[in-house]
Each structure stands twice: as C-alpha cells, then as structure tokens.
Design a protein around this nucleic acid. Structure first.
Lengths: 340, 340
DNA sequence: ACTGGCACTCGCTACAGTCGAGTGCCAGGA
DNA sequence: TCCTGGCACTCGACTGTAGCGAGTGCCAGT
C-alpha cells in the first residue's frame, strides 16, 4: 500500500481540519489552509487513494472527505505529536491539587478538572482494591450483636460494612478479634487475602470461632467480591457540544453506556502499565459507544498503577491534546497519592 | 374566574392526552377520546376561556392546545388523584429491598429503582449529616503523627478524614483521645456538635491539648462544613426519551444543572416533612431547569426525615404516577432504614 | 347554553428549480 | 513518471410555490 509522505500529510491535514471545523474538508480548502505545495487536483488524487485504503470517506458524493476510524487510528499512531500543555493548563492542574483533604476529594477534583480541561466526559476510577493493601481493619461495636467493619486501604480508600453476628460479643471479644484480624491481614494485598481469611477462621479460639466465621464471610464479600470498583464521572454536558452532529443525533446510547459502571471500567480500567490507551470508534467492544472514542491511562503513586482515568468524546476529538492532558493529570494524581 | 366543572374536565383531558401523545390536542380529538358529553364547538369555547386564564396555550395559530406550567399546576393540585401503584411496581420495589448490604448499596439501588420505575432522572440524597447523630467516632493510627478519623452516623453514613497531627502520639494517647471524644460526642446530633467539640478542647488534659485542638478542627470541618451532603443520580439517559421535543432540543442546560450538587440539593433537599413537593417548570429557581419538573419528597426511618429523593423530567410528565412512585419508594426506604 | 356550519389560518409536505462545493477524469507539460 | 489545469458531472442545501388538513373563532339557530 503506497502511502508516501505527502499522502500522510494530506491525511493529517484532513484530520486536523475536520476536528476543528467539524465539516467535511475538500481539496481546495485543504491546499489553501496548509502548505502542501501541490495543486488541488493532486490532492484529489491522493484523497482517492486514501479513500480506497479506507482512511477517509465521503459522507455523500459531492461533499468533502471525513476521516474514518481507521484514519484516526493512523493519525494517532503515526501522524501526531503529543501537544505540550499550555501554561494555563499546567496552572489549572497544579491549582486543583492544593486543598484536597481526602481520597474522595482527590477523585472528585480530578474528574472535574479532566472534564474542564478536555471539554469531554471525564471518568476516574477509584484506586482499585485489588491492587491495594490493607492498612488497617477496624471493628466498631454498634450493639452487642452488631459490628461495623471498616477497612482502610493504603491508597486511602475506606470501605465499611455492617455485620450481623451470630451471637453477642463482649468488648474484650471485639478487641481480640480486631487484634487477630489485623495481625493476619495488615499489609496484605487484597488480592491475596482469601487464604489468609481462611486461616483466620481455622486459627481462631473456639469461643470466637462462630463470630470469626461470620466476619470472614463479610470480609471476603466486601474486600474481594463486592464493591470492588468505584467510578466518578463528570462533564456529561460536554456531550452536547457540537450540536447533534457528533453521535449522529442521539445521546441516548452514550448516556446509557455511561450509567453502567462495568462499561466504564472496561474502558478505562484495563490499561497496561504507563501506556496511554486510545480506543477509536468501534475499536471498543460496546455497540452503544461506536461513535465515541476513549483516551485513558493508569495512575498510581510512583510506578505502580492503582486505577485508571480517562476521557470519552466523539471520534472527532483533539487526540493529541486529550492524550497530553490525560497523561499530565494522571501523573499529578500519582504524585498526590505518593505524598500520602 | 369562572372555571366550572366541565372546563376543569377539559383541562384534565388536555393534560392527560398531551402527556401521553406528546402532541397538541384539538377539540375534536378530545371529545372523541373522552366522554365529555358535549360537542367540539363547546369544548372550543371552554378552551378559549382556559387559554385566556393562562392554563393552556397554542404553539401556533392553527394547532391544538398545550398545557402551560400554570395548567399543570392546577392539574396537580386539584384535578388528579394519586395513581395506585401496579402490583408489578410493588413487586419491583420490594424486590430491590432484599440484599442491600450497606447504606451505599441502599442509596444506589434506590436511585436506580426510581429511575427505572418513573423513566425519569432519579435523585437520592444520602442521609443528611445535619440530621444524623454520631454513633461512634473511631481513631485509627496510620503512623505516629497521622490518624484516620472515622465517623459513623446512626443513619449508617460513614465519613473519614486523614488527620496530620502536630506531634507523635502513643497508642495509649490514641485510646484516651478516642474515649474522650466518644464520651462527649456519641449520640449527639451533628448539628449540635460545635459547642461540644469546643468543650472537648478545653477539657482535654494538657498533654493532649495540641493534638485535640487539631482533631477538633478536622472534626468541625468534616462533620459540619464539608461533605455535608452527598447525592446519587441515575437515569440521565431517560432525558432523551421523547426525542428532542421535550427540553426544546437541547439537553445541555439540564445536564449542566445535574452536575451541580448544590442545584440538586435545592431541588430535592428542602422539603417539608412528609409532603410530596412538585415543582413545575419555572417554579424552580434555576434558569437551566425551566423546561423541567421535579417531584420530590423526604424520607427517613419512622416519622423523621433524614434526606430527600425525587425525580426530574420534562414538564410533560405523568405527575400522578410519578408522585405515587416517589412516595412509595420513600416509604420503603424509610422502613429499610428503620430496620438498622 | 349548546350545536352545526363555515370561513380562515398556518404549519407541514411535496415538488421543482437553482446554486455551488466538490469530485473524477483526461490531456498536456515538466 | 508525476503533476497540473480544465471540464463535465453529481448531489446536497436552499428557495419558492402550491395543496392539504387539522384546528380554530365566530355566528346564527335551536
């Protein structure tokens, strides 16, 4: 497939123009706005080739060209440089850092920041429990037969669960249980807890055995099975920018997809370490999101990844800019987490 | 203003037809679909009066009539009976109850249930801290100079905050602090804590005074000032039902409003005890929501109200149905909370 | 007080005509 | 061999016109 440099330049120009104007771009306009050094007719020939190869297409016969998903892919992979952030953006990111008092706060600020900077829908995954370690487990007596189990992870996440005990326990019992549980589980990675919890039951003093069994069940449920992931979302109003042109006139499928945590997790959660992932159009697995693209990356203190974050918007988005912003925000959040 | 029974019946018929068909309703169609016992011409005369009084209007000269906000208001206040729930709806509500394991879970299930039943946007406020009491305050040592402060409210809400201490504290110190704090604050209503926290500092042993001062600051911040309210949202995709007819073609302002917690709180939070509140069109104070209506009510264990919940949709909504659903859900949630 | 009849309004749809951006192709030139 | 200018063609967007029909307001009659 003969894609020489000029054809690539033409593709790049088409993507850039289309992203900024949102209108199909024709050969004449192209040579006027970019220094391609050739005539419109030549560009037309190149366009014909690009179309044949599936990188661009014509919405209707006598209109300009529009990039296809494949065209965006080539653009992202080979034709674009990551834009450096503007000083204003850097300032905005730094400013958001100060004053965050806890994890909830950090996540909420981050997701709003991302939405504001990229003008897209922003998604931030809370630090995944699977990738966290237990810092402390607390048992708070609520009544004689009820405990509140509070788990604090090293990432700052706190999960709690009410536990109905099989029988009454004394304050001393609670102290013993707390000690036993923490001795066994503190600093363990959550993904490795099941056997430890099992051991906990087996090694428990006979008197506390039934209580410990109940606790163990809840522990496993809370820490491993349920609630595993949480998500914050912001900027849905940005979907309405660009009128009804993006998303072929209906936000319905997009909004539906955004309500499903599972979907969002798949989109931003499954990211390989320290790579920025770009999913364009139907590259993602959800029919509802065929008209959308996602830019996401992992974040975490230091080099480890504890969660994902990213933005979602129309395929016609500013990829270089969004990639730069997502990366920068992820790095800053990582630093922030490292401080704790 | 002479609104005799028949005119009211006409208004009711107009509202019902318009809500279900979404099209301006004319005099002929009206007499066909409802047993009004009079001719179209008579209905037209009545319509002219209703229009003069501001209850209905014509989108354009030769179209049918559409209710105004004022018309909906009259309909809600005087012309509609609350619809009894269908057995299917009752079953759905009951089914959602089982298996809720903690407050987060209850709130999320509730908001999704509401969205599903009403096919509108659902909003649920977490139990307000201002209306809760302290059940327990826990101090968890993270390092020698850092504590995690965990507050458990009687409504099941748990708030946590990392506290940076002025100097190192021992495990015994922590135990003392925990005891002092709980002695003073347990079972206190959160709105009444400020003087108690003040007393806490003044009565603290000299050695613990600086630490207690820091804790007091964070306590006040966490319990009273910050994070006071939380909100869960679901069903935004329902806004796209009815195509672009509702909300005059742009979801933008609605989506923007839904992103502001403050706005949502005003809408569903300020509700008088055990009344269902209906805000129609521009009766609410936000310009962005002039095309929307809100049905909300308070909920809580027993007769007390600890938070609000409701739905938001186009002014053209099924008020009787939504009012019934909102009330029923609120009652069920209240019962659920009472069990804990 | 209600009804049937009638003239009128006006948005909606269909259709025809024009305009123009953009294309594909081809013959000629570097 | 590759590029260019020229030219015929396509087709969507826009405009103007005409007919249709739902719906109205008014009025005279019961």
């Amino acid at each position: 497939m003969g894609l020489d440099d000029r054809k690539l330049a033409v593709l790049r120009a088409i993507v850039e123009d289309y992203v900024s104007t949102q209108e199909p771009v024709g050969s004449k306009a192209l040579v006027e706005r970019h220094q391609l050094g050739v005539s419109p007719a030549t560009v037309r020939n190149d366009m014909a080739v690009l179309e044949e190869e599936g990188y661009i297409r014509q919405p209707h016969t006598s209109a300009g060209r529009v990039p296809t998903d494949r065209g965006y892919r080539l653009f992202v992979d080979r034709l674009s440089r990551v834009k450096p952030l503007s000083p204003a953006e850097r300032r905005a990111i730094e400013r958001f850092l100060v004053g965050a008092v806890d994890l909830d706060d950090v996540v909420h600020r981050t997701v709003r920041l991302l939405a504001q900077l990229t003008r897209q829908v922003a998604v931030v995954q809370y630090p995944s429990l699977a990738r966290s370690s237990v810092r402390h487990l607390e048992l708070v007596p609520i009544s004689t037969t009820r405990l509140m189990l509070v788990m604090i992870a090293d990432t700052g996440r706190v999960e709690q669960r009410l536990v109905e005990l099989p029988g009454p326990v004394s304050a001393d019992d609670v102290t013993d249980l707390r000690r036993l549980i923490n001795e066994k589980l503190a600093n363990a990675r959550l993904s490795e807890t099941p056997p430890l919890v099992q051991a906990l039951v087996e090694e428990a003093p006979t008197l506390l055995r039934p209580t410990m069994t109940t606790l163990a069940t809840v522990l496993l449920e809370t820490l491993v099975e349920r609630h595993e992931e949480r998500i914050a979302l912001a900027g849905t109003a940005n979907l309405t920018r660009g009128g009804l042109l993006d998303f072929q006139g209906s936000l319905r499928p997009i909004l539906e997809a955004l309500e499903e945590e599972v979907v969002l997790l798949k989109l931003i959660g499954e990211t390989e370490p320290s790579t920025t992932r770009v999913l364009i159009g139907d590259e993602n697995e959800f029919d509802n999101l065929r008209a959308a693209s996602v830019v996401s990356t992992g974040y975490g203190p230091g080099a480890t990844i504890v969660g994902g974050l990213g933005v979602l918007g129309p395929t016609r988005m500013d990829y270089p800019g969004n990639i730069a912003t997502v990366r920068a925000v992820a790095r800053y959040v990582g630093e922030l987490l490292a401080q704790n």
